[in-house]
Nucleic acid binder design. Structure first.
Lengths: 204, 204
DNA sequence: AATATTTTCTATATATCTATAGAATTATTA
DNA sequence: TAATAATTCTATAGATATATAGAAAATATT
């Protein structure tokens, strides 16, 4: 064997530690908000001293940008793959809802930070995150629009408002997921889909 | 006339100024977040010096509490009155949605601060705001539950999740209202009601 | 083992923010 | 107008935060 190191740790020690640092930042930002915490809180979570954090981040702002980018990139990647599958509108919405809820369970810190703190990234750094957000929004718009063209979605529906309502619904879940992490995902998924797709009134 | 002052200004100069201070705090907290702003930002908006603010607020935290209380109290009061009218579920949801959207247009700062910043009130002060929030939540739960009992709402719906979905939907609107203040309220109301009550799928 | 590299630590310059005390100003009342 | 009360100002103590530089410790390499 020429390689002495196990094949599993492809990442350098630095890379592993950097990821741990982003994780710690996500957790702290999610709990206390970006402006509500100090770099010392992140350092504590990593068991290093406050000053050492700057070995991994050029600034506190850079840490926030990193966290937000992870959060939104996962969602856009998923959406890209989903669109290529050309599912029905109903199936698409189910799949997106499931993925979003699962992300909120497993990586809730990242979702919360992206939802609530991204506006704290200084304007000159916000470019990449904005681009991804618009990307995500536009893909959702496409899905809803083509659902309407295919006749699955009500013709009278305003696509922009529906998309916003849908994302609002999803992001709202991140708030209570954070407080109650052991909620039954499948049940929430079923209820969300039912309400969003066919409403909460009994059909007449 | 014994009264020299016009009947309209019943409020003392102090009271008027205090309200202006709460307004200013709401605007600043909504824009920069509680931890992201300084008391100097609020003072600037009032055209007074930073130290003078403490004539109206015992502390920055007290200002936040005041803003949050205004925000939630308006909503709970409305809900109390609404319940006494014993409307149908559908009418109730329409009325609540309309009032919420109107509040977000007219007093968006207060809504945004209540939604996003209330967790920054220190625990020992959070009592009143929590009480009102629970109050609001419980009244909504009652409305949905009785809608189910009356047979208007689908029997299989999980009331807790539905209420959370509904409030999530409403609060999400506050985000884009803030960015685009001249949105057509009646249109949003129509779309929200349509989606939430009967879903976005075309009936089969 | 000696040397080089990576990672963490200590100490600090710099800036900022909250809250307070007492003076100054403005408005109200006698 | 003089006296009193209400409002705002100035100046600052005290706390805390970010970011940097260079030393120290840990790890890897020769």
């Amino acid at each position: 064997m020429t390689d002495k190191k196990p094949v599993t740790d492809k990442k350098s020690k630095y890379d592993q530690r950097y990821i741990a640092a982003v994780d710690a930042a996500a957790a702290v930002f999610a709990e206390k908000s970006y402006h509500g915490c100090g770099t010392i809180d992140i350092a504590n979570k990593l068991n290093i001293k406050q000053g050492s954090l700057y070995y991994y981040f050029k600034s506190k702002e850079a840490a926030l940008e990193a966290v937000c980018l992870v959060g939104i990139t996962e969602q856009t990647k998923f959406l890209e793959e989903l669109i290529s599958k050309e599912l029905s509108f109903e199936e698409s919405v189910q799949a997106i809802t499931r993925f979003s809820l699962k992300s909120q369970q497993e990586r809730g810190d990242y979702m919360v930070v992206f939802n609530n703190e991204r506006k704290s990234i200084p304007l000159e750094r916000r470019g990449k995150v904005r681009e991804q957000s618009h990307n995500y929004h536009n893909m959702l718009m496409d899905i809803f629009r083509s659902g309407q063209v295919k006749g699955e979605v009500k013709a009278e529906l305003d696509i922009l408002i529906s998309v916003r309502a849908y994302t609002g619904l999803l992001s709202s879940a991140s708030k209570w997921y954070h407080a109650e992490p052991d909620i039954d995902l499948e049940n929430v998924l079923r209820q969300f889909s039912e309400v969003f797709l066919s409403g909460c009134l009994k059909p007449v």
